[in-house]
Design a binder for these strands. Sequence first.
RNA 1: GGUCGGGUGGCCGAGUGGCUAGGCAGAGGUCUGCAAAACCUCGUACAGCGGUUCAAAUCCGCUUCCGACCUCCA
Length: 493
Amino acid sequence: MNTDLYIYNSLSRQKEKFTPLHEGFIGMYVCGPTVYNDVHLGNCRTFMSFDMIYRYLRYLGYKIRYVRNITDVGHLLDDGEDRMSKGARIDNLEPMEVAQKYTNGFHHMMKVFNTLPPSIEPRATGHILEQIEMVQDIIDHGYGYVRNGSVYFDTLKFAQKTGEYGKLSGRVIEELIAESRDNLKNQDEKNHPSDFAIWMKASDEHLMKWNSPWSVGFPGWHLECSAMSTKYLGREFDIHGGGNDLKFPHHENEIAQNMGACGCQPARYWMHTNMLLLNGKKMSKSDGNTISPEELFTGNSVHVTKGYSPMVVRFFMLQSHYRSPNDLTDEALQAAEKGYKRLFEAIKNLGSLTSPTTAPTPLDSRCDEVIVTAFEDMNDDFNTPKALSRLFELVTIINSLKEGQVPVSDISQEGLERIKSAFRTIIFDIFGLLDEADTDSGPVDGLMNLIIDLRHQARNNKDWSTSDKIRDSLNELNIQIKDGKEGTSWGYK
RNA sequence: GGUCGGGUGGCCGAGUGGCUAGGCAGAGGUCUGCAAAACCUCGUACAGCGGUUCAAAUCCGCUUCCGACCUCCA
């Protein structure tokens, strides 16, 4: 078995063997949400992807410091207004009240999707000092200049000296230079159009502002990630992640800031998740092509015919690779829902299986091979759809054993235990799925056993009208009766 | 316009020079009192046009369509 992990590195545009900076330890930084609005479903995909990655790295035995920030300042709109301030103005709230409200909502949604909390979740407003220090470092190294109280990053100088600007996003600095010839005159304070603010002087009516050596103002958006990743993970760390729409300018500028301040490329592996589409198009509020997590759960949207549970959504996302675009459609969700239920039904069946066989069997080796392959798929840049397909190969075997199409003695008890263990590890620990049907407690099981028993008696008496009435009435209640070789079981449809 | 990534069967979605992806839907069958469930079998596929090759969905070129970024965005 190939136990090396390969990760697609956006910087090199190829899969690379993963080697951490410090053996056994991983530092991972993921760009978190801007908390000025309810969390976007596409955002959820990104964080679920990195949750799966975090979980898999943990499974591999690494000790991980997973840092995911909360952006609560510095994110400018077209008109120059800060997102937080705008949210505050609209809702008539303190900026921090807005941040708290949507942070709470974000945390709730992350919990609903069963993502693990990061090790550290720093806020931009809690790290103003670190950001000011970084601006100073950048100025000291000659890559920042001050204009009217604002500080800009000198991309041209940085590009010429290091040759690094544009590497991640594929931008060519010569083109940026060429562009500048036309635009230079219109540039207010900047030397070059691609220069970006690392500190901005605040206007009087600006709500969120701090003292600095240059002005009363606020940090540029790209700066927080540079400052906080450096603070918690060091100048160099292993993995930096985010949505691929952040590649430029955000991540490109982050690299420039880190290099400008400390002289080194911050992350060894840059990982980018792809977009979530809705009906083949990008989600967009303005043209109505959008759906919120809540609407998806309740079915209260023109885009879906019914609600889909958080775990079905998570399963749906696992069915595509994190680097591929994923098209959310009602039909695809229905398919995912059935697949999810089939998988968890098999897990239930697996739990009830025991075998009298003690010696290894051919079926044992076949299953072992499938399991090994599933982990190899995960080692190949976290290929969850492929690993999932292996699991479904086992689902068929499990069901055959359960229903007697294949004698249970064909597999050994130890072989069964290995499948159980692999399922636990992959489905629950790595994929982060939960059994949503597993909420029954109290009298329901007892009642169902009683009903099934009565139906069994009716069937023995060939009283088909009674037995069918029980079956059909339960069916109307969304309870499905399953007559198997080993007796009758039931489940929610 | 520039940069990057895509177009795979009815739907979603892996694969990336010769070898079954998988899920859902469909057809036939086994089982069943009848069904359902489960299992078995089956089908149609690689956007189009050229080229390279013994061999291409996979590599190259062109065309076309879609998405992301270039301006706030996961």
